[in-house]
Design a protein around this nucleic acid. Structure first.
Lengths: 241, 241
DNA sequence: GTCATCATTCACGCTTCACTGAAGGGTGGT
DNA sequence: ACCACCCTTCAGTGAAGCGTGAATGATGAC
């Protein structure tokens, strides 16, 4: 019988093609952005990523040929978006593995800001990323196909964090946004809900802000309680300041 | 501020390196085999995959440098194994995405055997793959680090399929094995448990064997009941023969 | 109509990577 | 001691991928 390595096998060929698309920093980051934060134009992407327009365009053309992104022309703008919300799962699996891998053999000491810091008025860093993934995993938050987020059916995870969904006011500002964390390459929670969650953690004395900066410190109380509220959150030693 | 694409960022660099390792048919298949079926020697791998020994060795050296596999020399054999069981999650996420992608735009018509066929005395194909992932997801089956499988705490999923865990006799043969499906690139269930599950499905009239072959046909009864037992199982039209 | 902006395409040079075939160490069997 | 086997390493060749810079199309503002 023929060997296992037969690139004519549709599934194998498809997996390889997918991995090849992800094996470039520009394409990977663009996909992460499109998946976590919704549609962007080419110029937005090339501006945010800091690469030239032709370079960005070439990579987007590849992604489009691979069926990972779609493009819609409106006037002289080309709006790109992730073709399927499922790609977020793949990206998250990769980022989580890489993250765990780094924890095993860290290449640089973990900075306090890696654990938690504020992004405007919500929590970012490892804390913010874990809040996001926990809320999504427990069904309290539901990512929509266009990058937006809506409340899910079971909001018990929110209640445990000390937030009452009924009090949220999304009239003047988006309820929740997926803000891609630049360090961890995973989305963290922004918007009204992000601010409320951080407020509840501060009020509960689980974390406290550092004076005159964006740093967040996990208190002893937080070290004791957060792992139960946020499964998967592993606090490096010394993170309580 | 610097752009998002900075390969000095440890997480980004790690994700890219990981994707690059997976972007080759030999490396990907080797990882799938090591992850699903446990340790293999170099010659076993090069024999099964059908590639030359130097080629296989070079790819394994790369995987070792990337920290994805470990090697242990015993005599003149080099036994390779997956460095972490977590890599299975990444591979499964990739294969699942590719699989869904192919369902959207199939490159060849689905053959009946793609849905279900026997592998010795257990179910393979899409049916077998779905059985495996369902049992693992529901905690009835627990993959161990070395590729072996053990019963989990909650075996209700097995009971629903018509198998009583107390009747399983694992003295003469392994209880359960993860047998990598060559078509779907995901593990399916083998061993005593695999045989029992297939027996229960046949006894319940959900599937029936085709005369004189390894094909399995999903009956009308199966079409009605299997999707509830195995979430995520999508039967292509015409699969009931 | 003219200009500015945005997106895409082309040609070119550069780098990186993977495969082959042969040779080199090590180990176990006889 | 010899041979058979397994694994690894080496040099050489060929192909593929990537980035730059300039040119081309298309659209909207004035």
């Amino acid at each position: 019988m023929a060997g296992w390595v037969d690139t004519r096998e549709p599934v194998l060929a498809s997996v390889i093609a997918l991995a090849r698309e992800l094996a470039d920093p520009v394409r990977l980051t663009a996909l992460q952005l499109l998946s976590a934060e919704g549609p962007h134009t080419l110029s937005q992407l090339s501006d945010v990523l800091g690469v030239s327009a032709p370079r960005m365009g070439n990579h987007l053309a590849r992604l489009r040929a691979a069926g990972l992104v779609t493009v819609q022309r409106t006037g002289r703008h080309a709006v790109y978006r992730a073709a399927s919300a499922d790609i977020g799962d793949v990206l998250a699996a990769l980022a989580r593995y890489a993250h765990a891998d780094l924890r095993i053999r860290p290449r640089r000491p973990a900075a306090p800001g890696d654990v938690a810091h504020t992004c405007y008025d919500h929590a970012a860093g490892l804390l913010g990323v874990t809040i996001f993934s926990t809320l999504v995993a427990r069904g309290a938050l539901r990512p929509l196909d266009d990058g937006e987020l809506a409340l899910g059916a079971d909001t018990s995870a929110l209640a445990e964090l000390g937030v009452d969904p009924a009090t949220l006011d999304a009239r003047r500002r988006k309820l929740a946004t997926a803000c891609l964390d630049r360090v961890h390459r995973l989305p963290h929670l922004g918007g009204v809900l992000g601010a409320e969650v951080l407020g509840a953690l501060l009020a509960g004395g689980l974390v406290e802000g550092q004076e005159g900066g964006r740093g967040l410190t996990v208190t002893a109380r937080g070290v004791a309680r957060l792992p139960a509220l946020l499964p998967g959150l592993t606090l490096p030693p010394g993170s309580t300041g």
